[in-house]
């Protein structure tokens, strides 16, 4: 079924090389986008919980805007709209970035900042789930706000939300396919290109599907290991910290137990 992937393409490569190249872009987007998302998400998430009402409002504004506009629309805003809104010289410079970087960077910002809004909400939930006493104990020790967050609050909150962060990792990784709409040849785009070139749609989409599945499995297992590695000895397994008695962890797990069968 997949033998078509070994055939030569018009440009002298094999179709499988197209897939590998697409996979490379997918991974690069997901990986670097994740770190942007994590860094921004933690900052905004903290911003949601600080005393200062100005910072709180700012963080909330960020979350509402980036969470409530479809990621595809955001993709277009970064790619089509931003260069037009910047001063002409800067906009022109952006428009002249050669492909594929001209599409990679907008996609990277888009996915990173979109996912950041979602991570910020998880971070906030994690912080709010910590017992009030932690705050007070730190204050009683005379620790500054910065030290309290850096050494007391964040380490605990982040551990708490590892399971929900797993689902954000899966989310950004799946959303990388949206970048094909602005012309980045990532995995899904390459699969479609192979399908168009060879009419072997089953093989092309099937191969891409298997790659996505395998990666989802790896990402899921990796996050499980991280969850285990960072767990505080004696503490219960991490669970989503929105305070409801509803078992939301399992809801947020993108790869449910059924994954084991696929394996």
């Amino acid at each position: 079924m997949f033998t078509v992937l070994l055939e030569k393409t018009v440009d002298g490569q094999r179709y499988i090389d197209w897939l590998v190249s697409g996979l490379g872009w997918t991974l690069a987007l997901a990986f670097f986008g994740w770190w942007i998302a994590f860094a921004v998400g933690v900052v905004v998430g903290i911003g949601r919980t600080v005393q200062n009402p100005f910072f709180r409002a700012l963080a909330r504004l960020y979350v509402e805007i980036f969470r409530n506009i479809p990621v595809l629309v955001q993709m277009f805003l970064w790619y089509f709209v931003l260069p037009e809104l910047l001063p002409t010289t800067m906009g022109d410079w952006i428009k002249q970035i050669p492909p594929p970087w001209g599409t990679f960077f907008p996609a990277l910002w888009c996915l990173g900042l979109y996912t950041a809004a979602r991570i910020a909400e998880q971070v906030r939930a994690g912080i709010e789930a910590l017992p009030r006493g932690q705050d007070e104990a730190a204050a009683a020790l005379g620790l500054s706000g910065y030290v309290t967050y850096r050494h007391i609050i964040l380490p605990q909150a982040l551990r708490l939300i590892v399971p929900s962060l797993t689902s954000e990792v899966m989310g950004i990784y799946k959303n990388t396919s949206v970048a094909l709409t602005i012309g980045l040849m990532e995995l899904t785009a390459q699969a479609r290109q192979i399908s168009d070139a060879t009419f072997q749609t089953f093989a092309a989409f099937g191969a891409a599907t298997l790659i996505y599945l395998a990666l989802a499995l790896i990402a899921y297992q990796a996050m499980m290991l991280i969850d285990k590695a960072v767990r505080i000895p004696g503490a219960a397994p991490g669970r989503e910290a929105d305070g409801s008695d509803f078992d939301a962890v399992k809801l947020e797990n993108p790869v449910p137990k059924g994954m084991e069968i696929v394996k």
């Binding site: 396919s177 899904t188 699969a191 989409f205 599907t209 993108p254 790869v255 449910p256 059924g258």
Partner: peptide
Amino acid sequence: LVRSYVALMRSIPLILVLFW
């Protein structure tokens, strides 16, 4: 069957599902 279906749908991008 259902569990496999659910796991599959939740592991691949919606755009790929649309193409499929």
